[in-house]
């Protein structure tokens, strides 16, 4: 299940990169800032939640670096340097938050909480949020 979430988040990220590169002539600077930061935050959150559950807390530097570099890449593809900065900042924030939540889900005693069932719900919820954000962004390209 976690593999599916990871793969679908990766596919969504690739399709976002293609759409951003195609529509780059339509973007104003503020619009590019907004959509690049939102995509980077959602992608970093979903990727790092699924990755932490899948690899059980190993190789965390890799997913953090991937989120940061993907935010920077989206900004470069959209053609504005300020969008690249906003994307990398938001990607690193989202991935840091996802790593924290994933570690607490793996070991709830870190926060003094009892063990819980249904740990798949939180990565699934973040994937749903990412799909919702993607739909909103794809709808907003028309205007």
């Amino acid at each position: 299940m976690h593999e599916l979430i990871l793969i679908s988040a990766g596919l969504l990220m690739i399709s976002h990169a293609v759409f951003l590169f195609r529509k780059r002539v339509l973007l104003t600077e503020r619009y590019a800032n907004t959509i690049v930061s939102v995509i980077a935050a959602g992608a970093g959150l979903t990727l790092s939640l699924a990755h932490t559950a899948l690899f059980e807390g190993q190789l965390l530097w890799m997913i953090s670096g991937i989120s940061l570099l993907s935010g920077c890449l989206y900004g470069v593809l959209s053609g504005y340097m300020s969008a690249a900065i906003a994307g990398s900042v938001n990607g690193s924030i989202g991935s840091a938050m996802g790593i924290m939540t994933g570690e607490v889900l793996l070991n709830p005693a870190l926060c003094g909480l009892p063990t819980q069932d249904g740990q798949i719900l939180l990565p699934l919820f973040s994937l749903l949020f990412f799909i919702l954000i993607s739909l909103l962004i794809l709808l907003s390209y028309k205007y």
């Binding site: 503020r30 619009y31 907004t34 959509i35 930061s37 939102v38 935050a41 959602g42 959150l45 924030i93 989202g94 938050m97 924290m100 939540t101 949020f129 954000i133 909103l136 962004i137 907003s140």
Partner: peptide, 18 residues
């Protein structure tokens, strides 16, 4: 406007997870 709504959606969700 709609871009503020998108920013608020994303930021509220991040802070709510934290």
């Amino acid at each position: 406007d709609s871009q503020s709504a998108l920013t608020g959606l994303s930021n509220g969700l991040m802070m709510g997870l934290m």
